[in-house]
Design a protein around this nucleic acid. Structure first.
Lengths: 150, 150
DNA sequence: ATAAAGCCTGTACCTTACTACAGAGTCAAG
DNA sequence: CTTGACTCTGTAGTAAGGTACAGGCTTTAT
């Protein structure tokens, strides 16, 4: 398979060419080799990388976090780096699990709502979202306090 | 329990007061009753509502989507509305399931990375993220084509 | 060989989701 | 009964994540 122009790569990944260049500037996609004309030449794996970025973003990771995750692969051979990488990966796993559990609760509640809507027996009123809203028994998730600049 | 001032409600929900007012302007939190002085008086459930908004945002829903979901509860008694609500809820369930499956794949891969890092036997090189990047077998998730305005 | 379509760099602009004042009124602890 | 912490409205600014030209080369299809 021949290398891809930016337009082809973008299309395959489901984004615009501007986005690909933006990701390159942001260090999410490595700078590809160029033709003598200056045209970028993408290997096929870049498409997968971009798709990964998109998926990660859809589930609530920021580009910064995604960049960190992608960085995990480089040079996990150096012992010190490897340790740091492990810690980061562990953190991300915790994030991922938290998100999954939130999503599962949402799924349950939405399913119940659909169900209730399908039956529509008698009493009407279907205040399910109320329950959804009510089940945040996760004591204290602190939000960064954010110090103000002088 | 007495009603809460905006400051108390914000603190309990883990956000700033400005955010609460912002959510009110955006129709995510209903306008609360006021004192004669103009001070807002929040019922305790508003805190849960705000926490819900935050959690939903963390897993990648936009405020627009969240507003829709919260809207599901109002007046699911009207038959027509109920039908529309069911459809929307079903869509959201699909979203939620997609997100869950992406997250599960991520979890697996991250766990494998940690594992590999822990063992660190022999060969070093630990190119696991490569695999992560490679498993996007979801044929074609189209991205909105976005028509340009004249 | 020529014209449409694609790519280049660079800058400007846009939306989303806050966040930060300013200037003025309100509440509650000592 | 004052004073410091809070609240009000309104407007402006910020950060993240793109998106859209402009002006100018390069490819490719006819």
């Amino acid at each position: 398979m021949p290398p891809l122009t930016i337009g082809k790569a973008a299309k395959l990944a489901g984004v615009g060419v501007e986005t690909v260049r933006f990701y390159e500037r942001e260090g999410l996609v490595p700078e590809p080799p160029r033709r003598q004309s200056g045209y970028r030449q993408y290997p096929a794996e870049t498409v997968q990388r971009i798709r990964f970025i998109r998926r990660a973003k859809d589930i609530g990771f920021t580009l910064k976090e995604i960049r960190e995750m992608l960085g995990l692969r480089v040079d996990a051979s150096a012992a010190a780096t490897c340790d740091a990488a492990r810690k980061l990966a562990e953190e991300k796993i915790a994030d991922v699990r938290g998100k999954i559990s939130t999503l599962r609760r949402m799924e349950t509640v939405l399913a119940r709502l659909v169900d209730c809507c399908k039956k529509r027996s008698a009493s009407s009123e279907c205040p399910i979202l109320e329950t959804l809203i009510k089940e945040g028994s996760d004591g204290n998730k602190r939000i960064k306090p954010k110090q103000k600049k002088k």
